[in-house]
Amino acid sequence: MDFFSAMDISASALTAERTRMNLISSNLANANSTRTAEGGPYRRKDAVFTATPAPAPGSFGAALGKAAQARGVEVSQIAEDQNPPRLQYEPSHPDADPQGYVAYPNVNVVEEMADMISASRSYEANVTAAQAAKSMALKTLELMR
Protein backbone atom coordinates (compact mmCIF):
# COMPACT_ATOMS: atom_id res chain seq x y z
CA MET A 1 0.00 0.00 0.00
CA ASP A 2 3.01 2.29 -0.38
CA PHE A 3 1.45 4.25 -3.20
CA PHE A 4 -1.29 5.52 -0.98
CA SER A 5 1.17 7.14 1.38
CA ALA A 6 2.90 8.69 -1.64
CA MET A 7 -0.46 10.03 -2.81
CA ASP A 8 -1.11 11.43 0.67
CA ILE A 9 2.16 13.33 0.48
CA SER A 10 1.27 14.77 -2.91
CA ALA A 11 -2.20 15.66 -1.64
CA SER A 12 -0.73 17.53 1.32
CA ALA A 13 1.43 19.51 -1.09
CA LEU A 14 -1.57 20.35 -3.25
CA THR A 15 -3.48 21.60 -0.23
CA ALA A 16 -0.56 23.72 0.92
CA GLU A 17 -0.07 25.25 -2.52
CA ARG A 18 -3.76 25.96 -2.81
CA THR A 19 -3.69 27.78 0.53
CA ARG A 20 -0.76 29.79 -0.72
CA MET A 21 -2.62 30.67 -3.93
CA ASN A 22 -5.57 31.84 -1.86
CA LEU A 23 -3.30 34.13 0.13
CA ILE A 24 -1.68 35.48 -3.02
CA SER A 25 -5.10 36.20 -4.53
CA SER A 26 -6.15 37.93 -1.35
CA ASN A 27 -2.96 40.02 -1.38
CA LEU A 28 -3.50 41.03 -5.01
CA ALA A 29 -7.17 41.84 -4.48
CA ASN A 30 -6.37 44.03 -1.49
CA ALA A 31 -3.32 45.74 -2.95
CA ASN A 32 -4.98 49.09 -2.54
CA SER A 33 -7.16 48.59 0.54
CA THR A 34 -6.42 51.39 2.91
CA ARG A 35 -9.13 50.45 5.35
CA THR A 36 -9.78 47.14 7.11
CA ALA A 37 -12.08 45.95 9.90
CA GLU A 38 -9.13 45.82 12.33
CA GLY A 39 -8.18 49.39 11.46
CA GLY A 40 -5.25 50.50 9.35
CA PRO A 41 -4.35 49.36 5.87
CA TYR A 42 -4.40 45.76 4.68
CA ARG A 43 -1.29 43.80 5.72
CA ARG A 44 0.27 41.34 3.29
CA LYS A 45 -0.15 37.69 4.31
CA ASP A 46 2.32 34.89 3.70
CA ALA A 47 2.13 31.12 4.18
CA VAL A 48 4.89 29.43 6.16
CA PHE A 49 5.59 25.90 4.90
CA THR A 50 7.04 23.21 7.12
CA ALA A 51 7.82 19.58 6.33
CA THR A 52 5.82 17.04 8.31
CA PRO A 53 6.34 13.33 8.78
CA ALA A 54 4.03 11.51 6.39
CA PRO A 55 0.96 9.92 8.09
CA ALA A 56 1.87 6.41 9.20
CA PRO A 57 -0.36 3.90 7.37
CA GLY A 58 -1.69 1.80 10.21
CA SER A 59 0.58 0.42 12.93
CA PHE A 60 3.46 2.36 14.52
CA GLY A 61 6.82 0.93 15.42
CA ALA A 62 8.70 -0.42 12.42
CA ALA A 63 6.28 1.14 9.97
CA LEU A 64 6.83 4.55 11.53
CA GLY A 65 10.59 4.18 11.28
CA LYS A 66 10.48 3.76 7.53
CA ALA A 67 7.54 5.92 6.56
CA ALA A 68 8.82 8.88 8.54
CA GLN A 69 11.53 9.53 5.98
CA ALA A 70 9.01 10.47 3.34
CA ARG A 71 7.58 13.77 4.51
CA GLY A 72 4.62 15.81 3.40
CA VAL A 73 4.22 19.56 3.77
CA GLU A 74 1.80 21.74 5.68
CA VAL A 75 1.14 25.39 6.23
CA SER A 76 2.16 25.81 9.86
CA GLN A 77 1.04 29.43 10.12
CA ILE A 78 -0.18 32.34 8.10
CA ALA A 79 2.21 35.15 8.86
CA GLU A 80 1.42 38.81 8.40
CA ASP A 81 4.13 40.82 6.77
CA GLN A 82 5.69 43.05 9.43
CA ASN A 83 7.11 45.61 7.00
CA PRO A 84 5.70 49.12 7.51
CA PRO A 85 2.96 50.18 5.11
CA ARG A 86 3.77 52.28 2.08
CA LEU A 87 3.09 55.96 2.72
CA GLN A 88 1.85 58.15 -0.08
CA TYR A 89 1.13 61.87 0.04
CA GLU A 90 -2.58 62.34 -0.71
CA PRO A 91 -4.15 64.99 1.54
CA SER A 92 -7.54 64.78 -0.16
CA HIS A 93 -7.98 61.06 0.56
CA PRO A 94 -10.57 60.30 3.34
CA ASP A 95 -8.01 58.06 5.08
CA ALA A 96 -5.23 60.60 5.10
CA ASP A 97 -3.51 61.11 8.42
CA PRO A 98 -2.92 64.65 9.87
CA GLN A 99 0.26 65.08 7.75
CA GLY A 100 -1.65 64.20 4.55
CA TYR A 101 -0.07 60.75 4.07
CA VAL A 102 -2.18 57.71 3.23
CA ALA A 103 -0.92 54.30 4.37
CA TYR A 104 -1.19 51.83 1.50
CA PRO A 105 -0.69 48.07 1.92
CA ASN A 106 2.89 46.83 1.56
CA VAL A 107 1.91 44.55 -1.33
CA ASN A 108 4.34 44.43 -4.23
CA VAL A 109 2.27 43.31 -7.19
CA VAL A 110 5.22 42.06 -9.24
CA GLU A 111 6.46 39.97 -6.35
CA GLU A 112 3.00 38.47 -5.88
CA MET A 113 2.83 37.54 -9.56
CA ALA A 114 6.20 35.81 -9.34
CA ASP A 115 5.00 33.93 -6.24
CA MET A 116 1.88 32.93 -8.11
CA ILE A 117 3.87 31.46 -10.98
CA SER A 118 6.06 29.55 -8.58
CA ALA A 119 3.03 28.24 -6.68
CA SER A 120 1.32 27.01 -9.83
CA ARG A 121 4.53 25.37 -10.99
CA SER A 122 4.81 23.46 -7.71
CA TYR A 123 1.13 22.56 -7.95
CA GLU A 124 1.62 21.06 -11.40
CA ALA A 125 4.68 19.14 -10.30
CA ASN A 126 2.74 17.58 -7.44
CA VAL A 127 -0.21 16.76 -9.69
CA THR A 128 2.23 14.92 -11.95
CA ALA A 129 3.59 13.02 -8.95
CA ALA A 130 0.10 11.98 -7.88
CA GLN A 131 -0.74 10.84 -11.39
CA ALA A 132 2.48 8.86 -11.59
CA ALA A 133 1.63 7.08 -8.34
CA LYS A 134 -1.85 6.29 -9.62
CA SER A 135 -0.56 4.99 -12.94
CA MET A 136 2.00 2.74 -11.24
CA ALA A 137 -0.62 1.31 -8.90
CA LEU A 138 -3.00 0.64 -11.79
CA LYS A 139 -0.23 -0.98 -13.81
CA THR A 140 0.46 -3.32 -10.93
CA LEU A 141 -3.15 -4.46 -11.07
CA GLU A 142 -2.50 -5.70 -14.59
CA LEU A 143 -0.40 -8.49 -13.14
CA MET A 144 -3.58 -10.07 -11.93
CA ARG A 145 -5.33 -10.05 -15.25
Binding site: S10, E17, A54, V73
Partner: peptide, 8 residues
Protein backbone atom coordinates in the same frame (compact mmCIF):
# COMPACT_ATOMS: atom_id res chain seq x y z
CA UNK B 1 6.96 12.76 -3.90
CA UNK B 2 8.04 14.18 -0.59
CA UNK B 3 10.89 16.09 -2.27
CA UNK B 4 8.38 17.58 -4.69
CA UNK B 5 5.94 18.37 -1.91
CA UNK B 6 8.64 20.29 -0.06
CA UNK B 7 9.97 22.20 -3.04
CA UNK B 8 9.05 25.49 -1.34
Amino acid sequence: SSNLANVE
